[in-house]
Nucleic acid binder design. Sequence first.
DNA 1: ACGTTACTGACATTGAATATCAAATTCAAG
DNA 2: CTTGAATTTGATATTCAATGTCAGTAACGT
Lengths: 141, 141
Amino acid sequence: MKREQELLVNFLKQKGLKQTGQREKILEVFLANMKHVSADELHAIIRKSDPRIGFSTVYRTLRLLTEAGLAREVNFGDGRARFEKAFDKGQHGHLICTSCGKTEEFVVGAIDKAIKQVSSGVGFKPMGHRLEVYGLCKKCQ
Amino acid sequence: MKREQELLVNFLKQKGLKQTGQREKILEVFLANMKHVSADELHAIIRKSDPRIGFSTVYRTLRLLTEAGLAREVNFGDGRARFEKAFDKGQHGHLICTSCGKTEEFVVGAIDKAIKQVSSGVGFKPMGHRLEVYGLCKKCQ
DNA sequence: ACGTTACTGACATTGAATATCAAATTCAAG
DNA sequence: CTTGAATTTGATATTCAATGTCAGTAACGT
C-alpha cells in the first residue's frame, strides 16, 4: 500500500470516519493525476472509470484529503479552487501566465526562510503559505 | 487634487472613458478606508453618504481601479474578493490567522529578489504577486 | 444646445461552493 | 454471519459572489 493510502486510512481511523471504496478510488485517481485539478475536473476523470461516483463525494473527499494533509488548495485566479498533491512535496509557488493561463511550479528556499523570519518577529506561527506570481510566460511576452 | 485622483483621470482619458461623480466618490471612499474591503462592504459604506449609488457601479469601479493600478485584489480564503490600495504601496504579503481571521501585512525585500531570480531563470516576466501565509496569530496560539 | 457614446442601477443570470436528506454502506459487537 | 447504530453517498436544492443585460441617464466634444 502506498504511503498516501496508509495516511488516509490512519486519518480516517483517528477521526472515527469510515473507509469506503469511493474514497480509495478518489485518492488513487487524484494521486495518478499530474496536474492541478478542480473538484469538477477530478469528478469528470473519475466518471470515466466509475460513472456511479457523484460530484458531492468527490468534492467532500477533496476537502477530506486537504484536512488530512494529502492535498492542498491553490488558486489561479480563474475563480475556481484547484487541488494539488501535498504529501512528500514541499511548499512551492506558482508562476501563472496572465495571457495563456499556463502555470509552472517553483521552489525557493529563500522564501521559506523569509517567511519564518517575518513571522517570528511578530509572534505569528506560520502553518502554510501560498505564493502566486502573475506575469507573462516566455511565449507570451 | 490627490495623486490618485489625477491618476484615475488620466487613466479614464487614455481609455476614452468618462469622468463621473460616482467614480470620484467611490475612489474617495476607497482611499479613505483603512481596511481591505469587498465590493459589498465598500458599497455599504458608500450608501451611508449617498444611497443612490448602486452595487454594480461600485463593483465595476473597483475593477476599473484595479486596472488603473490604484487597487489590488487580495484573497483571505473566505471566498470573497477583497481590495486594497495599490498606489504608493509596494507589494507585500499577508499573515492570515486561521483561527480568528485577523490579517497583518508585511514586506520582505528578500521575496521580491527571490521571485525575480526564479522568473528570469525560466524566461518568465513577473508583473505582480500574491503571498498569503496562513497560521496562528500571537493570541490564538 | 446637441448628438454620440459611455455610464448607471435595478434586475436577471451564472456557476462554484455548500447544504439537505433518504437510501445505501460500513463496521463493531454479539 | 447477522444486526444495529453511525457514517456515507449521490441526487437535488440552495446559497451567494461574480458577472451579464438593458433601458434610462449623464458626460463631453463639437
